[in-house]
Amino acid sequence: MVKLASAREVRMYGPRLSRNRTEYMNAGLYVFATVVLLGGFVAELSKEPKSGLVLLMIALVVIMMVNLHDLLAHLAGIDYRLTLMEFDIQLALVEFAVPLLQALGSLLFFLGVLFLFIQEYKGRVQSKLEKHALNMLIAGPVLWVVGSIHNSCQIYERADGHVQILQQGVHIPFLTGSVLFLVGAILNAHEQAGLNHHGLQLLGKCWIWVGIFGSLLFVIGGFMNVVKVFKMQQVDDLRLEKLRGGAHERLINERDGQVPLILEDQRRIKKHIAAEEPKVALPLPTPYKDVLIGQTHQNVV
């Protein structure tokens, strides 16, 4: 899945005026990717299963890119200062880990499908490559499941029942769909262990049908995510209190200071250098009274 609607307003999806529009585009692209993913599994049942693999790879690339963009947007919200994660558990578990795990899972899933496509296209039998492909088809959904579990750690200071229903409406379909993909890949690997199949024959009917149901849940979760993103942009403060504290509050407090962060760091460096420089004794200035007395004495003489 992809985590788009954050509990905080510190996301950086481009300029401030186009932030909401960019978030809507991300949610729309994810729905498109899930529909293409569903079409890829359905195409595996047709007479041209290679086209299904191509659709699967396109969908996985889009899912990976949307998650990476979401990851960069949240890192930009903290000025890419990863050290701030030690002060904010949700920042580490949700805003950083979820899109990262989903992107890595999509990459592994993509590589597994790609290896099988290469095997089918070249017509060569490479047992090691096929074994790695089946393992990657399992490893990808494993990361999806872990990412979906992490996404349940997203909390709010206060939220009414409507917001909580929207959040669970996104979380539950993605978690269930990820589990289905994982179960289908494990059953397929167990089924192919005693058979001498190669290429597309390694993708059994069980994996395809379970993938269809998992993709349907992803489509439902994608549409619910669009609704959630829209509602989160329209919700008022009485129904939702954004999450406070942690890394973002520390960063905002530094930004609100009189000295910018860069200048503050430069000033600290200058103070450190000045403290290490050797001190030179300077002559004390002559008081003004002594100067007048000296001039009077010269005039009398």
Rank of each mutant, 00 (worst) to 15 (best):
H248W: 03
H272R: 12
V259S: 02
E277V: 09
E264Y: 08
G257S: 13
I293A: 08
A247S: 14
G294N: 07
A281D: 11
Q298N: 11
L261M: 14
H248S: 06
K289E: 12
P283E: 05
H272D: 12
L284E: 13
D265N: 13
H297C: 04
K270E: 06
E249C: 01
G246N: 02
P278D: 05
D265I: 12
P285R: 08
H272G: 01
A274K: 05
G245E: 00
G245S: 04
N253G: 01
P287W: 01
Y288P: 02
L251Y: 02
G294P: 03
K242W: 14
I293P: 01
R255L: 13
G294W: 04
D290C: 04
Q258M: 14
I293C: 01
L261K: 03
P260C: 08
P285C: 00
I252L: 15
G257C: 03
D290K: 12
Q266I: 15
A247I: 03
R255T: 00
A247F: 03
L261R: 06
K242T: 11
Q266S: 10
E249S: 10
G245L: 05
R267D: 06
A281M: 08
P260Q: 04
E254K: 12
I293N: 07
G257D: 15
R268M: 05
N253P: 03
E264R: 07
P285Q: 00
P283L: 11
P283Y: 04
D256Q: 15
E277S: 05
H248M: 03
I252S: 04
Q295D: 01
Q295C: 01
R268N: 09
I269T: 07
V291P: 02
R267A: 11
A275I: 06
E276W: 10
L292E: 08
P285F: 02
L284N: 06
A275K: 14
G294S: 06
A281V: 14
L292N: 08
R250H: 12
L261Y: 03
R255V: 05
R267I: 15
L263A: 08
H297R: 14
A274G: 06
L292T: 07
L263Q: 15
K279S: 04
V280T: 11
G294T: 05
E277C: 07
A274R: 05
R267Q: 13
A281G: 04
Q258K: 15
A275G: 04
V259K: 03
D265Q: 15
Q298Y: 14
L263V: 13
E249Y: 05
K270L: 13
K279Q: 05
L261Q: 14
Q258I: 08
L282M: 12
D290H: 08
R255Y: 15
E254F: 09
K271P: 03
R244A: 15
E277H: 13
Q298D: 12
V259C: 07
G245C: 00
T286S: 07
E264N: 15
P287Y: 00
